Computed example of a mutant assay.
Amino acid sequence: MTLLLFPELPSEPPLPLAWPVDHSPSRLAVTDANRAAAAWLAAPALWPVPVTLLIGAPGSGKSHLAGWFAAHHDGLVIEAADTHEPERLFHAWNAATPARPLLLTSQRPPRDWHHGLPDLASRLAATPLIRLGEPDDELLGLVLAKLFTDRGIKVGDDLIRWLVVRIERSLGAAQAVVARLDAEALARHRAITIPLAREVVDGQGEMGF
């Protein structure tokens, strides 16, 4: 049984419902921004050791890829690994096997963890590390379109393009703006259009969310 340890999501804006997440291969948004990372996570049997560390800034898509990885491989995912007890990471690393690989995520590389456990440091030094940059326009647009579709909302490509250049460049911001637009549209009995998006995004300050 796969164990997912995701960090706590931002408290605002609240999600009115627990929307299901589709982790099927065809629904994974892949662009040049995350193509190499997605290809690596798709083939854990080819890893030199059964552990990988995924590094990226907040909103870069670590949780998105970790969730997809967990849905397709009988492994363990530990997010924000640098915040966990070093002994737990050490034992998880030792327990990983090709049949049950381990994926760690963090905002920081291991040299900045300051855990003070030499045995863990040696194992992390032998662990493949892949990095995610900020989402590019294509990835942000694909994610926005997927989030609207997951909620059963049809929007035009013009709205997606409008949002891409106005919200913060993170997948968390994409989730937040879609949730807020959905809530506002329901409350106002309006369709989600650029005029509504302008009201909502401009109301959140520069660059939206």
Rank of each mutant, 00 (worst) to 15 (best):
F209Q: 02
W68N: 06
H72L: 13
L89S: 01
A95V: 06
L196T: 07
H91A: 03
D182Y: 04
A173W: 05
W47Y: 05
A18K: 14
L129V: 15
L9R: 15
P58E: 08
P50R: 09
S63W: 12
F148H: 01
G56C: 08
H72P: 14
G172P: 04
L65V: 08
D158E: 14
F90E: 01
L53N: 07
P16R: 14
D136Q: 03
L124I: 08
P13V: 04
L132I: 00
I160Q: 02
D32K: 13
D82S: 13
A176L: 02
I130W: 12
L163V: 07
R131T: 15
A33Y: 07
R27M: 11
R108A: 13
E134H: 11
L89P: 04
H73K: 09
A71V: 01
M1P: 12
Q204P: 04
D137C: 00
L196K: 07
I192R: 02
R180H: 10
H84F: 10
D74V: 02
R180C: 01
M1T: 00
E8Q: 14
G172T: 15
S11K: 10
T105Y: 07
R169D: 06
A66H: 03
S106Y: 11
A176K: 10
P101S: 10
G56V: 03
R123C: 01
G156H: 06
L139G: 05
H114Y: 11
L132V: 01
P135H: 03
L139P: 01
R180M: 07
L186Q: 09
V143T: 06
E12H: 11
L144E: 03
G141R: 05
H72M: 10
L196W: 03
I160N: 00
L140H: 09
V49P: 00
P20E: 03
D119P: 00
I78N: 03
L144Y: 09
P16A: 12
P135Q: 04
I167H: 07
P98K: 15
L65Q: 11
A18R: 15
P16C: 01
H114R: 13
M207T: 15
H23F: 13
A38Y: 10
E206I: 12
T149M: 00
Q175C: 06
H64M: 13
H189N: 14
G203R: 11
S24I: 00
L124F: 05
S24T: 11
A36D: 11
L144G: 02
F209Y: 15
W19Q: 04
G141M: 02
L129K: 14
P135K: 05
H64Y: 15
A36S: 13
G156W: 01
L41T: 14
L139F: 05
Q107N: 11
L4E: 06
V178F: 01
Q175D: 09
L4R: 14
V49K: 03
N34W: 11
R180D: 07
T52W: 00
A126Q: 12
W19H: 06
A125I: 05
P128A: 01
R188Q: 15
P98M: 09
A18L: 10
R111D: 08
A95R: 10
L124C: 10
S26A: 14
P44K: 10
R88V: 15
P13R: 10
A70W: 12
L46D: 13
R190E: 13
L28V: 15
R123T: 04
R169C: 04
D158P: 00
G152D: 02
Q107V: 10
L54G: 02
T105G: 08
I153T: 02
I55N: 08
P135T: 00
G205A: 07
G116Y: 04
N34C: 05
R108C: 08
L15P: 08
